[in-house]
């Protein structure tokens, strides 16, 4: 037989052939279809759920960070109500704009204030931030009443609100006392015009992130933004710190 004939023989035989499968096979097919139909909608749902989960994670993280921002802001508001201590310390910064006698007096005040600050902080190092802050404010008021009026008079100036903001931020910082003051010192030394820095959401978020990365490092890297929307990073290190302030 030729090859073609052989092929044709089989072709004809198989063309319309029918074989009867066992009925059990359909049952098995049905079961497989049932399993599949359970899987498919879940897969489709998975797509949706995975996006929803990703969005939820993102929202929770950003919410956590912004809540930290609000924490700072709320403490700013708290301390802003008690202007005298802040003003007292800010005067230290604006020596050149004040008269000599006032400066001297304020220097004294600042020294006493810092002493009190140190004492207070040492006593209350275990307290949480907000409680500590509010107590410090009260102490200031008690100790510095004699200079209160002077401070008030002298600092009724347009730039007064800025120093308050800055000072409050520093005082409210979640850092131990030593670094806290060091940090304020270094800030004076390194960036005198820091009061003009603007902060927006992005910089505060970035600042929070860097703060949280290493709590030991006290604001070595600061993010600022300016009017034009450009960002700047200022890196502060121990070199700029005032060597006279020794706490240890």
């Amino acid at each position: 037989m030729e090859d073609k004939d052989l092929d044709k023989l089989f072709q004809e035989a198989f063309k319309e052939a029918e074989e009867i499968p066992r009925p059990e096979i359909w049952v098995q097919i049905e079961n497989k279809l049932k399993d599949d139909s359970k899987v498919v909608p879940i897969r489709k749902r998975n797509n949706w759920w995975s996006y929803a989960a990703a969005a939820a994670i993102f929202v929770s993280i950003s919410g956590y960070l912004t809540s930290k921002v609000f924490e700072e802001r709320s403490t700013i508001k708290l301390t802003a109500n008690v202007p005298t201590p802040e003003k007292a310390t800010s005067n230290y910064n604006y020596n050149t704009t004040k008269s000599q006698s006032v400066d001297e007096k304020l220097k004294q005040d600042n020294n006493t204030k810092y002493e009190h600050l140190v004492n207070y902080r040492e006593k209350n190092s275990d307290n949480n931030l907000e409680a500590g802050t509010s107590k410090v404010e009260l102490v200031y008021i008690e100790e510095l009443t004699e200079n209160q009026l002077l401070a008030n008079i002298k600092l009724e100036e347009p730039t007064s609100h800025l120093p308050i903001v800055r000072q409050v931020t520093e005082i409210d910082d979640i850092k131990p006392i030593f670094e806290f003051e060091e940090e304020s010192e270094s800030m004076y030394a390194a960036t005198p015009n820091e009061g003009k820095e603007k902060k927006n959401i992005i910089t505060t978020l970035l600042n929070n992130i860097t703060d949280n990365i290493d709590s030991k490092v006290n604001k070595e890297v600061r993010f600022h933004t300016d009017d034009e929307g450009s960002f700047s990073i200022s890196i502060l290190n121990s070199i700029a710190k005032n060597p006279t302030k020794k706490r240890k």
Binding site: F14, A17, E18, E19, I20, P21, I25
Partner: peptide
């Protein structure tokens, strides 16, 4: 995914398809 329709469809084509599978 009408199961009844699928059963009918299967019964219509299964013999022919099974013959293919067999060879």
């Amino acid at each position: 995914q009408n199961r009844k329709a699928q059963a009918q469809f299967y019964s219509y084509f299964s013999k022919k398809m099974f013959a293919v599978c067999m060879r």
